[in-house]
Write a protein that binds this DNA or RNA. Structure first.
Lengths: 200, 200
DNA sequence: CGGCGCAAGTGACAGCCGTCATGCGGGGTT
DNA sequence: AACCCCGCATGACGGCTGTCACTTGCGCCG
């Protein structure tokens, strides 16, 4: 019997995935959580064999949850199930020691299959995404990332400078760097590109 | 027996929702489609009582699908199930004659419940969202919408002008108008606001 | 100590952006 | 005809943006 905890913020999807997994005779859904912090508590209480988690959740993301599990050396496996085919996300997930990374685009049967593979000690990583993740590295440094994130929210260089305690000109230098590295024509395009790759 | 067709692009969610609905003794999932065009064909072939559809799908969106059903006066009901709590989407959905509009944030049991309500001839609209939709109207006109959409992709005023066969200055006028109407400080903020409300 | 590298800052320049007042022509109203 | 509204255009202004060359201060390492 594979004992599973489910973390996913959208209640309807959470319920549906739970129903799906409960159809499998060798899988038992112990419980589910709607956000990262709840998942963390349930994790310690229920001690599942495998955690199946989304990435985008309020509070603590799935990636941060995986990192925390790694840091505390908890014995359970982690499978990420997400909408986002972003190389940067996969990379961070692998760094956090997850055993599986599936896209919600993949057929539903894959999930149970991945659970079994991972429970046996194997890995279940989306193959196309794995390819891309090895060839495309994030070119941005921390400052560029911060600045780009704020620029993407519509802040001006001056606003960003205030937030980060930098000078107006320095912010523009970082933005210019980021735009150049990403091959974009302006901050908006740069932001979109970086977000799409999962580098923010 | 309520006969249902499911349209949802993410295979895993599609499979999970299907599993969920099949647990209900009075509901039968006839089939499912991964995009709008497929759904449209299956709709005519299977003649379900109710179509349950996502909004964001490749090709034809759920909203466009609902409009098409309305135009052809097909006898089935439509329930929209989406991630997006955007007043503009709900408004367009109601204009397209849908009977239900649920958020994926809502508990899973709501879906079956909504199916029964709608099948009986009732409506199932997310209550909070319904409130907002009645009080917030889209202030943008067609040109402003077009211009803002392109601006959000990172195009400059000149680029947008070329695409829309307008002058450089006119595009900036429309952008300025849109920024003013939305109470934003620049095009980026304006774009984010409008998208969040479902006005793009 | 000297030198290197790195994060942050400066200043200047051209071009783009956001705003506003104003103009023009076509379509509809009275 | 006189009128007004509408979509589009123009031109000018100040501020913001993107780029680049160059400086400053600081920690590190030989």
């Amino acid at each position: 019997m594979i004992r599973v905890l489910l973390a996913e913020d959208q209640a309807m999807v959470r319920g549906a995935l739970s129903a799906l997994l409960n159809l499998e005779s060798d899988i038992e859904v112990l419980g589910s959580a709607a956000d990262g912090e709840t998942a963390w508590r349930e994790l310690q209480r229920l001690k599942p064999d495998v955690l199946v988690t989304d990435i985008e959740m309020p509070g603590l993301t799935g990636l941060e949850l995986a990192q925390r599990i790694q840091r505390h050396e908890l014995p359970m496996k982690v499978i990420i199930v997400t909408t986002f085919a972003r190389p940067g996300f996969l990379r961070r997930a692998l760094d956090a020691g997850v055993s599986g990374y599936l896209l919600k685009d993949a057929p539903a049967e894959n999930l149970a299959e991945a659970l079994r593979t991972v429970h046996r000690g194997g890995r279940a990583i989306d193959p196309q995404l794995a390819l891309v993740a090895w060839t495309e590295a994030d070119p941005l440094n921390d400052r560029e990332r911060q600045v780009l994130r704020l620029a993407g929210e519509g802040l001006s260089a001056g606003d960003i400078a205030t937030r980060l305690n930098l000078s107006h000109g320095t912010v523009r230098n970082y933005l210019s760097e980021a735009i150049g590295k990403l091959g974009a024509g302006n901050r908006i395009e740069a932001f979109r590109l970086a977000r799409q790759k999962g580098w923010l």
